[in-house]
């Protein structure tokens, strides 16, 4: 049922137009003598066609059309203005102001029916296109969701591939990613960026895939030469991810390259300092070191949470961005909850 809004200060014209609209069938006429009241009605209701007279006491047809068009979602609804043939200037102004067509006075039934039918057909097409656009947008959203899901799975599997060759555990990757997200939240990042760092942080050590076993798995201290090779994992990870079309992979590339930089410029691989280090790299540096210190490994003792926090404090402005340290320590109870949620698996006997 098409809703046809009719505005005319003359009762007889309202009655005539109403009768003609009803003769079209499948139409519901909505009548107003006062254009201001009609405009109020339009704020909460969506007509399919507007038929408005030009000359009315409170507000003329031109002003009505302008005000109507200014309402959100009413930009394309067909509007017919009723004018006399001798009102050429009014017609030009109405066309410029947003009227789609005219009805001549005195109203001729045949002309009226044809023009109103045309306008309602236009409206039907608009609705069809809008529905179709909505349907397509839904499909795109669904497909995008599937792609994102596959991307997340790929990232997870890639991070695990690196993990198989590294003494670090899967739980470490989960914890440091969630710690990174905590810091981002505390720093005021929007939800999208928080999600991005959560998904990208697990790739921070993916470059270790390219480090020889005798270095990566060496139980003792690395020689200076071996350490130089080990440092190469940052650039290797970056090279692996850098050309991706995925926003998450690109964030992962940045994190891989910069998470060993230090705030005072003494880190690697590029020796960047302060805010020259991308913020994701500065965040992950805090999260990664804290979790490494507080995790048990065959080759090192476990640090207490308090000692690890002290280490972060001592590293403020040297190793770590002070803002990131403060953000992390400011989320202490949330950090404990993450530690409890992602615990290292006990080794099999």
């Amino acid at each position: 049922m098409d809703k046809v809004l009719i505005i005319d200060d003359s009762d007889i014209n309202l009655a005539l137009v109403r009768a003609l609209v009803l003769k079209l069938g499948e139409c519901e006429p909505v009548l107003f003598e006062n254009p201001l009241q009609a405009l109020e009605w339009c704020r909460d209701n969506l007509p399919d066609l507007v038929i408005v007279d030009y000359m009315m006491p409170e507000m003329d047809g031109l002003s009505f059309i302008k005000a109507f068009r200014a309402l959100s979602g009413r930009e394309l609804i067909p509007v017919l203005m009723v004018t006399a043939n001798d009102q050429r200037e009014v017609r030009y102004e109405a066309l410029n102001g947003g009227a789609n067509d005219f009805l001549n006075k005195p109203i001729d039934r045949v002309e009226f029916m044809a023009r109103v039918r045309n306008m309602l057909a236009l409206r039907t097409s608009q609705r069809y296109l809008a529905d179709r656009a909505l349907h397509l947008a839904g499909l795109v959203e669904e497909q995008t969701r599937e792609i994102r899901q596959r991307e997340r799975e790929l990232i997870y599997r890639m991070s695990r591939a690196a993990e198989f060759r590294d003494p670090e555990t899967g739980a470490h990757i989960q914890r440091m990613a969630h710690y990174s997200c905590l810091i981002a939240r505390r720093l005021g990042f929007d939800v999208k960026l928080q999600q991005l760092i959560l998904e990208a942080a697990p790739m921070h050590d993916v470059g270790k895939i390219g480090i020889p076993d005798f270095i990566l798995l060496k139980p003792g201290k690395l020689t200076p030469e071996e350490f130089e090779v080990m440092k190469g994992h940052a650039r290797l990870g970056y090279e692996l991810l850098k050309d991706s079309a995925s926003e998450t992979m690109l964030a992962g590339a940045e994190i891989a390259l910069t998470h060993h930089e230090k705030f005072d410029g003494s880190g690697y691989p590029r020796g960047l300092a302060g805010e020259d280090i991308p913020i994701f790299g500065r965040i992950v540096a805090v999260a990664d070191v804290f979790d490494a210190l507080t995790s048990e490994r065959p080759y090192k003792r476990v640090w207490s949470l308090e000692d690890a926090a002290l280490n972060l404090e001592e590293g403020r402005g040297k190793h770590f961005d002070p803002d990131c340290v403060d953000a992390f320590l400011g989320m202490w109870s949330e950090m404990i909850e993450i530690r409890q949620r992602f615990q290292d698996e006990l080794p099999n006997d």
């Binding site: 003359s10 009762d11 007889i12 009655a15 005539l16 009768a19 003609l20 003769k23 005195p106 109203i107 001729d108 039934r109 045949v110 029916m113």
Partner: peptide, 20 residues
């Protein structure tokens, strides 16, 4: 002719006019 021969419409239009 304007009303495409619709007598019924003529009557209702006339009645409204006479009232107004």
């Amino acid at each position: 002719e304007l009303l495409a021969g619709d007598e019924e419409l003529f009557v209702s239009m006339t009645q409204v006019f006479l009232e107004e």
